[in-house]
Design a protein around this nucleic acid. Structure first.
Lengths: 222, 222
DNA sequence: GACAGATTTTAACCACACTTAATTTTGTGG
DNA sequence: CCACAAAATTAAGTGTGGTTAAAATCTGTC
């Protein structure tokens, strides 16, 4: 497998660079460092190595960009991660707030054979439990463009497309509110001055904080 | 988990020391080095560290001995390994010659939660696909004492208890011969001068080499 | 009891992936 | 244009887990 030239650490850099690229135009060393919880110095050092291996382009101004080879590896790792998340939930009964951590470790050690087997068992799924798209084996990634719940207009409704998987606490809370991908929400009212956002789910109404509303992404009209 | 004070490397030392102890009275640094495919020097160095951590006792004469804490960790890792082997075979359809390698990497990253979940799914199994006993969560290990097929008397028969899981080639070959744990064999004749051993399985007779016969272990009478 | 040949251990070194601290670069307000 | 803070980089050091080569220690034989 292409990625096997790299240790778990290098794989994580590529994965993080890829996902940061989806949100930001320029991915700086400092951003990567924050996401990986390491020092910027370490990132700069690894950057040189990854550039030598032709997996990324890096310069101060334009930040990190993945090369074709780098992107390929990033997608392989992300595919592992998301397939594992779904597998842990569906086959082993993990709750959705626990799958991220477990997948984070397993993604670097499973073989391609393992990957293929769970892919078949899950019937070639396209989305993980948090609504993130699972890259196909050929590197294709379903294009999704959601809008944060916090950006919805008052009265506007939509289906939850995905939720941020980074904070288990938040996931547990979202679970209590039954805010899963696929659920319909209506933004009832946005209280002013950083106040909560009132939303309706089915019959129930809830008031959720801005931080949470920024971590829930809505599939708006076609 | 107790073992989490150690990296994958340290865990492997304990695992290897444990399993070598089952066969040999004194486990020397050189034996451990061979098994781990590293230099004896590396083993001696790690030995000092593990001794500091109170996981082993080591001296030139008596070799390696696990302390209570060391044994506990070794059994945790072995439990992971064997549960994973069985899980990979039963739940994911891996063939028995491939499970060892995969489990070898996964055993160091799965959580206790993962362990518990596959244990339940497999209905608290006692043996892995090669017939090796799976340590219980409390550190209990079914006592098994088998005799190598190569030691059987001519005409003696018995049930295959376990086979060595180290060589995938051999496992594939054993699979072709349908020599799985649970299968009954009769030693028909032992050809002299390091010659093959003729055995009978069901209706079929085979001639197998000494190396193989030393890797298959027979459950003899009670 | 000396000595050859294995083992075992020590020593010096390497790669990896991080750290902190000091330095350099860069973008911006005054 | 200059100073200054923030960001990026370099430098030096750490811990882990390996290597090879040389030194020390055993072991068995004559």
């Amino acid at each position: 497998m292409v990625k096997d030239v790299l240790g778990a650490s290098g794989q994580n850099y590529l994965k993080v660079i890829f996902s940061l690229s989806e949100t930001m135009e320029t991915v700086t060393a400092t951003r990567v460092a924050e996401r990986l919880c390491i020092s910027p110095a370490a990132v700069v050092k690894m950057a040189a190595k990854l550039q030598d291996m032709n997996l990324i382009r890096y310069n101060r101004k334009k930040g990190f960009r993945l090369t074709g080879a780098g992107r390929k590896i990033a997608l392989e790792v992300i595919r592992h991660h998301r397939l594992l998340e779904l597998y842990l939930k569906e086959a082993l009964g993990f709750t959705w707030d626990r799958v991220h951590e477990e997948a984070e470790r397993m993604e670097h050690v499973i073989s391609e054979d393992f990957e293929d087997k769970i892919d078949v068992l899950l019937k070639h799924p396209s989305y993980d439990p948090h609504g993130d798209p699972i890259p196909a084996k050929d590197g294709t990634l379903p294009e999704v463009r959601y809008v944060p719940l916090s950006e919805l207009e008052e009265g506007q409704c939509g289906e939850i497309g995905r939720v941020s998987d980074r904070d288990p606490e938040m996931l547990r809370y979202l679970g209590e509110l039954e805010m899963y991908p696929g659920t319909m929400v209506v933004l009832v009212k946005r209280e002013p001055f950083g106040g909560p956002i009132r939303i309706q789910l089915g019959k129930k109404e809830h008031a959720v904080g801005l931080e949470l509303a920024r971590s829930v992404f809505i599939k708006t009209g076609p």
